[in-house]
Design a protein around this nucleic acid. Sequence first.
DNA 1: CATATAACGCACTAACTAGTTACTTCTTTA
DNA 2: TAAAGAAGTAACTAGTTAGTGCGTTATATG
Lengths: 213, 213
Amino acid sequence: MAVKTTKKVRDADATQARILAAAKKEFAKSGLGGARVDEIADRAKANKRMIYHYFGNKEDLFRIVLEEAYTDIRTAEQALKLEHLPARDALEKLIRFTWEYYLKNPEFITLVNSENLHKARHLKKSDKIENLFKRFVGMVGALLDRGVEEGTFRPGIDPVQLNITIAAIGYYYLTNRFTGSIVFQRDLMAPEALEERLAFNIETIMRMVCIDP
Amino acid sequence: MAVKTTKKVRDADATQARILAAAKKEFAKSGLGGARVDEIADRAKANKRMIYHYFGNKEDLFRIVLEEAYTDIRTAEQALKLEHLPARDALEKLIRFTWEYYLKNPEFITLVNSENLHKARHLKKSDKIENLFKRFVGMVGALLDRGVEEGTFRPGIDPVQLNITIAAIGYYYLTNRFTGSIVFQRDLMAPEALEERLAFNIETIMRMVCIDP
DNA sequence: CATATAACGCACTAACTAGTTACTTCTTTA
DNA sequence: TAAAGAAGTAACTAGTTAGTGCGTTATATG
């Protein structure tokens, strides 16, 4: 029997998956330094011993969680099929996607922040990440070229700079939503505020990229 | 004698200043959770007991370091005297200032990130921060109004959204410079890369704000 | 059924960490 | 100059934490 139909009492795959999900939550909540291995074990309803058995140590576990997070966002991005849309629509779709992905997956932002606090020493050990992004930058580059051909985009825009900017204007707003809500004395997470921000972001990028914004 | 001319062996003010400087470094390097009080004491060449004597506890020390960091950047901003320049020049100067401040004071970014990881619970306890920013938003609002009067800026731009965007496009690039350099396979901190980024940022904002960019 | 193998869990340790106690030394001022 | 108080220190405590040794239990396979 190749496919398991009954729930096993012992299930290595399920335990590993529970540990990874729990680790993602805990690392996102407290950062690498603040995360507690005991807490991850409790959340995962697993024994701490299992974490060390499957993942080696805390740092390796963090690296795997991070790799998973990057793979997830890039996979979702590839599913957008931007190449089937007019360049202008595709660009707007990419901006919306980026914003909504950060909104729905706040742990992504926190994990990346934590990794940068540690100077990306875990990502340096990872080899599969580079190709993931090479394809992504290529996709945006092709989109920009197509827009220029269609006569809607200005030529000469660096796809990496554009990528960074699209990410930045959403990421910064959301990662700093707590201090931002205090210093600007408004609830940055109110539904109207979120809508307003998305609209501002779309306009910012469109004015940068389009000939006739 | 009101002014002390000789270096005292015991100097409360100097010790407090050394502790604050050391704490800023350590919190910036490791975050609130990762920072070690013993390490702060060592860096400050002070006894750990002095930290507790002057600052209460680790969390209070972090709050004071954070308040100082916010006060410093806003003080530097006020020294720009943007109101004496044509609106367009003033805006560009603000963008350059923001970028260069982040570059020269990388600990500012890390402290803010750390505070947001903790949902701004320290800043909530601070009262002097709000006024600091009220004045700043007012200044940018006045700048935008002046630009509209001068006929160079588009009307209807929200100063808070603009502030956030100016900060975002610099902040994100720098805070994620480690992961960014890996995923985009280029040294984001190379002098040419920094220049290129600043130029891109200025163009992004100018296209958003100016009638005739 | 027997045996190997892998999943799982308890209870421990060695190192670390925020915060404190109890003390000494220096500086100011009446 | 004497006394008070502030600056400074070493050694400690009580609690926490990443990581482990070793034993138990379930499952697959011959």
